[in-house]
């Protein structure tokens, strides 16, 4: 069954809204009601982690039953959120999609060059084995998988959703991969001074738009520590030291909770390597053995 058929069936069963993807080239999230079911799509440009919307503005409380489309990496968020009692399981219908990996749209524009005049529904993109096939303006382009794939997808451990009610498509057979923290180890091998230089260069760029906080599906506190004035742990001024404080606190709050969906790094307008920080925390939490005897909520409150 394809996505639209599944969605239609779910709407018949009493689901009110399905959070899914729409568009071919300009892919956007959509809160689809029953009459918009035809808009739902899924292609390799569907990069967003939609579980973020479940905890926004108390959305789950307003609706009886919500469907949400998840890829493998996003589905881990649902498990984590359930662990933290963010919402009750029977309110959510999880539509799982096995995923071959996703692509940044800018990379395609970069590869093909600027193309302006085309209609969104004439743009086609899909995986064919180990190749990505893009059709636009009657021309077709092919790219090898490992050249165009997003960095996080190259080391993806879970192409198949770990939790789902309905599955769209077939499960993917993939040799078991293990996170090796390659990028983190690279930084660790530098000397203290070199690391400091690397990080101040990055942190100085930060404009504190808080997109990394808002896009994170696990940053959903009703009142954020950054908005507190008394005590003011992170000052409002955008300077190097305040930026360091912000990023340390952000990464720390995700200790043992971050599922590695990589959204924070993707949205950053100035391209800070934020998942490096998250991965480092994950590595250390594993190394110190916290995860074994500690509930997630206890380390990074």
């Amino acid at each position: 069954m394809d996505l639209v058929e599944v969605a239609k069936k779910l709407f018949d069963e009493g689901v009110e809204v399905i959070i899914g993807y729409q568009g071919n080239f300009n892919v956007k999230p959509i809160f689809a009601k029953a009459n918009e079911v035809d808009k739902l799509t899924f292609n390799p440009l569907c990069i967003y982690n939609l579980t973020n919307y479940l905890t926004m503005e108390g959305f789950v409380d307003k609706v009886d039953k919500i469907g949400v489309v998840v890829k493998g990496c996003d589905s881990k968020t649902i498990l984590q959120l359930l662990d933290e009692n963010a919402f009750s399981r029977d309110k959510i219908v999880v539509i799982g999609i096995p995923c071959n990996g996703v692509i940044d749209v800018n990379k395609i524009v970069e590869e093909i060059g600027e193309f302006r005049e085309f209609k969104d529904n004439e743009f086609k993109i899909k995986w064919e084995g180990d190749e990505l096939v893009v059709e636009v303006n009657g021309k077709s382009y092919k790219f090898p998988k490992d050249k165009i794939l997003l960095e996080k997808c190259k080391v993806c451990e879970t192409p198949n959703p770990v939790v789902y009610d309905v599955l769209v498509g077939n499960l993917i057979q993939q040799p078991h991969r293990k996170e090796e923290f390659k990028a983190v180890k690279e930084i660790e091998s530098l000397s203290l001074e070199q690391r400091w230089e690397f990080w101040i260069k990055e942190f100085e760029k930060c404009i504190r738009c808080y997109a990394c906080r808002n896009v994170c599906p696990l940053c959903y506190c009703e009142s954020c520590v950054l908005e507190r004035l008394e005590p003011e742990f992170v000052r409002r001024a955008v300077r190097l030291d305040e930026n360091i404080a912000y990023h340390l606190i952000r990464a720390y709050h995700l200790a043992n909770r971050c599922v590695g969906c990589g959204e924070c790094e993707r949205v950053c307008p100035v391209n800070l390597p934020l998942s490096l920080l998250n991965k480092k925390v994950a590595k250390e939490v594993k190394d110190l053995g916290f995860s074994e005897f500690l509930k997630p909520i206890e380390v990074g409150r």
Binding site: R195, V281, L288
Partner: peptide, 24 residues
């Protein structure tokens, strides 16, 4: 019961992170 253990963990994690960003 837990307070001391939590503090110990938090400090240990924080120390490793500080080292990672190049602080003492």
């Amino acid at each position: 019961i837990d307070g001391s253990r939590l503090a110990k963990m938090r400090v240990e994690l924080l120390r490793r992170m500080l080292e990672f960003v190049g602080m003492d």
